[in-house]
Write a protein that binds this DNA or RNA. Structure first.
Lengths: 147, 147
DNA sequence: ATATAGATGCAATTCTATTGCATTTGGAGT
DNA sequence: ACTCCAAATGCAATAGAATTGCATCTATAT
C-alpha cells in the first residue's frame, strides 16, 4: 500500500488529503500511459464514490501543482499522467487513429533545438506537446489479419 | 484575382466548386497562420453569406483531401491552414497562453528521428503535431512595460 | 435542358469541460 | 478531543466546439 507516499505527494502540492484524491492518484500511478478524465473517473469509482466534476478539479489541481502532466492528443480530450519519474521529463506521444490509444514514446525520437528557437522566435517556452499520430502496431497487425 | 487557381485546387480535391468554398479558400490563402473555424467563418462572411456548419464541413473536406493542414493547439479548437507551399510540409507551431495566438515556427527547430521511431515503436505515422506553448515575444514585451 | 450526386441551411444533439452555489470535511489551532 | 474555517465536494446548470439529421438547393455530367 503506497498511501503514505500518495499522502505526501498531495500534501507537497499544498492540497488537503481526501479519499477522492488518493483514489485518483492511485489510478494515475498504476497507469502506463496518459488517461482521460473519464477513464480516471471510471477507475477511481472502483475505490471511492465521487463526482465527475471532482475528478476534473482534482486533475486540474494536480496539474497546476506540477504533479501531473496534461496532454492534448488527437481527440478532443485532455489526458493526464504522473510526472514523477525524473528520467522522462517531456517526451513525445503517439495517438492511434484506430483505437484512440495514447502511448508514451521514448524521448530520443525527437530533438527540440531550444537554442535555435530562442534566436528565431524569442518566446518563453513553458510546455512542449509533441504528438505523432497514425496507426499503432497493434492496429496494423489486426488490419493485416482481416484483409 | 486568384479564383482560377482556387477553382483548380477545389476541383483537384474532387469537390464541387461553390462560392462558399472559394471564399473559405481565399481566407485561408490570405492567412499567415492557422485559423480557427470561427475565425475563417467571420472572414468568409465578408465575401459570401454562409452557415457556420458549411465552414466546418468545407474545412473538413479540404483536410480530408490533403489541401489544408489541421492543427490542434493549446485550446480546444481546430485550426486550419493551407499546406500549399511545398517548402514547409510539417512544421512546429507556437501557442501563446496569453493572447491565444498560434504562430508557425521554422521547421529546423525540431528534428524527428523517424528511423529510430520505426525501431522503437513500429507504427504507421500519418501526422505530426508539434506545439511549443508559452508566452510569445509580443506578450512578453507588453508584460515588461506594465510591470 | 435535365437528372442526380453532392452541397447547404437550420435545428437539434453530442461531447468535454466549466461554473455557481449550498453543503460537507480536513486539519490547524486551541 | 473540540471548534472553526478555508478548502473540497456534489449536483445542477451552463458554456463552447463540433457533429448529425433532414429537407432543400445547386453544380455539373450527360
Amino acid at each position: 500500500m503506497k498511501s503514505r507516499l500518495y499522502e505526501k505527494l498531495i500534501r507537497d502540492c499544498g492540497l488537503k488529503i481526501t479519499r477522492a484524491r488518493l483514489a485518483v492518484l492511485a489510478v494515475l500511478d498504476s497507469a502506463t500511459r496518459p488517461r482521460s478524465t473519464d477513464s480516471v473517473h471510471r477507475a477511481a469509482l472502483e475505490m471511492e464514490p465521487m463526482d465527475r466534476v471532482t475528478v476534473y478539479r482534482t486533475l486540474e489541481s494536480f496539474h497546476q501543482a506540477g504533479l501531473v502532466e496534461r496532454v492534448r492528443a488527437g481527440d478532443r480530450t485532455w489526458r493526464y499522467h504522473l510526472s514523477l519519474e525524473p528520467d522522462r521529463p517531456v517526451h513525445p506521444h503517439f495517438f492511434c487513429y484506430c483505437c484512440g490509444k495514447l502511448e508514451c514514446l521514448p524521448r530520443n525520437i525527437v530533438r527540440v533545438d531550444l537554442e535555435r528557437m530562442k534566436q528565431e522566435y524569442p518566446a518563453r517556452v513553458e510546455h512542449l506537446q509533441i504528438n505523432l499520430e497514425g496507426f499503432c502496431p497493434d492496429c496494423l497487425a489486426k488490419q493485416d489479419r482481416t484483409e
